[in-house]
Amino acid sequence: MRRVLVIGCPGAGKSTFARKLRDVTGLPLYYLDMLWHKPDRTTVTREEFDIRLQMILEQDEWIIDGNFARTLPMRLAYCDTVFFLDFPTGVCLEGVERRIGTKHEDMPWVEHEFDEEFRQYIIDFPTERRPQMVAALEDAAARHGVRVRTLHARAELETELGDMR
């Protein structure tokens, strides 16, 4: 396990798990949100994002936290392991609500409210985003031998980390 993706619905705990995984493995951690967003809540260009991401992908070791569906096939071509946090919608909504008002290293600003559009994205995730994600993971496992660990509960995250210690 040298090149790891951590993906799943917003609020599932991807960034928290990725940080703990970094602490256990010593692998460098990169957050896609930090590559894409600027502190003033604007974004870099798609070209700049792709260049920065490609530079990370070409490194020997990394953990990349985040979804960004457009770049998932590119990231799957480079990774050897994926942790897919496939949690119930309610758990994800609670996860986002819990982090409102708190500074995190994976975002360049502090969220002060739960944006309704973002809430709807999470509600729609199981039907709008998850099927494509699952199909891409199945393809990567079959074609490239990518190891996919699908986790369905927070307790499984701790078990996974414990098994690595």
Rank of each mutant, 00 (worst) to 15 (best):
R22M: 15
V24P: 01
P28I: 08
Y31W: 07
D33P: 12
D33G: 09
M34E: 10
M34S: 10
H37E: 04
K38P: 12
K38G: 12
D40F: 07
R41V: 02
T43E: 14
V44Q: 01
V44A: 02
V44S: 01
E47G: 02
E48M: 06
F49T: 07
D50R: 05
L57I: 05
I64N: 07
D65Y: 09
N67F: 14
F68N: 06
F68C: 11
T71N: 06
L72Y: 04
L72V: 14
P73L: 02
M74G: 00
Y78V: 03
C79Y: 02
D80E: 09
V82E: 07
F87C: 03
T89H: 08
G90W: 09
G95W: 00
G95R: 01
G95N: 03
V96S: 03
E97F: 00
T102R: 15
H104A: 10
W109T: 10
E111S: 10
E111K: 15
E111W: 09
H112D: 09
E113C: 11
F114R: 10
D115L: 05
D115V: 06
E116L: 15
E116M: 12
E116H: 11
F118C: 04
R119V: 06
Y121A: 01
Y121T: 04
D124E: 15
F125H: 03
P126T: 03
E128F: 10
P131Y: 14
M133A: 04
M133T: 14
V134M: 08
A135D: 08
L137M: 11
E138V: 01
D139E: 13
A140C: 08
A141I: 06
A141E: 11
R143A: 12
R147C: 08
T150K: 09
H152W: 13
R154D: 01
R154Q: 07
R154M: 04
R154V: 13
A155N: 05
A155P: 00
A155Q: 11
E156W: 07
E156L: 03
T159H: 13
L161A: 12
L161I: 06
D163P: 00
